[in-house]
Amino acid sequence: MLARHTGPVEGQPSAPAGTSCPVEVIAAAYLSQTFGDPALALRCAITDALADLMEAERRTRERSRLISRGFVRGRLNDTGDAQEP
């Protein structure tokens, strides 16, 4: 798949703020990157969306793990089970 594009698309004028739907801007960017191939543009967009979703899920699991660990540590201290130095 193609690398993600993080800047303006060359040769494509940027739309004035508020005059273009973000979906259309994103679709145009993918089409531009894929030289007008709609099937490839769709596959690239889906690949990027799935990568973003997987990263968000990974971060959520990491936060959940850290929160659970903090909860357990706090609970041990509250009940007096853990000895303080």
Rank of each mutant, 00 (worst) to 15 (best):
D37M: 07
M54L: 15
T6M: 02
M54C: 13
A56S: 13
D78H: 07
P16S: 12
L50I: 06
Q83P: 02
T19H: 00
T34I: 04
R58F: 09
T34Q: 06
S32V: 05
R4W: 03
I46G: 01
G18A: 02
T79Q: 00
I46D: 09
M54A: 15
P22W: 07
V23Q: 02
G70M: 09
V23L: 12
R61C: 10
E84P: 02
L2T: 05
L42K: 12
L53A: 15
G70V: 02
A28K: 11
R73F: 11
P13F: 04
C21A: 10
V9G: 04
Q33G: 07
F35V: 08
A56N: 05
G74L: 06
E24P: 00
P38V: 01
V72K: 14
E10V: 09
F71T: 12
N77W: 10
A82N: 06
E57N: 14
A3F: 05
P22R: 08
E62K: 09
S20R: 15
A28H: 06
P22Y: 02
A56T: 10
L2N: 05
A17N: 08
A45W: 04
E57A: 15
A3S: 08
Q12K: 09
R69P: 01
T47F: 14
Q83C: 09
P22M: 05
T47S: 14
A45G: 03
C21M: 07
A15Q: 07
L40N: 04
R75H: 08
G70E: 11
H5R: 11
A49I: 09
R73Y: 11
R63Y: 02
T19G: 03
D52N: 14
A41S: 02
A41Q: 01
L40G: 05
R63S: 10
T34G: 04
P22S: 06
I46E: 12
A49E: 14
T6I: 10
L40T: 03
S32K: 07
R63A: 04
P22I: 03
I67G: 04
C21P: 00
A56C: 01
G7T: 04
G36A: 00
Y30Q: 06
Q12A: 10
M1D: 01
L76M: 13
R63W: 02
R69L: 11
L50S: 09
A51E: 15
C44A: 07
T60D: 10
P85I: 00
P85W: 05
R69T: 09
N77T: 11
H5N: 01
A17K: 14
G70P: 00
R75E: 03
R4E: 11
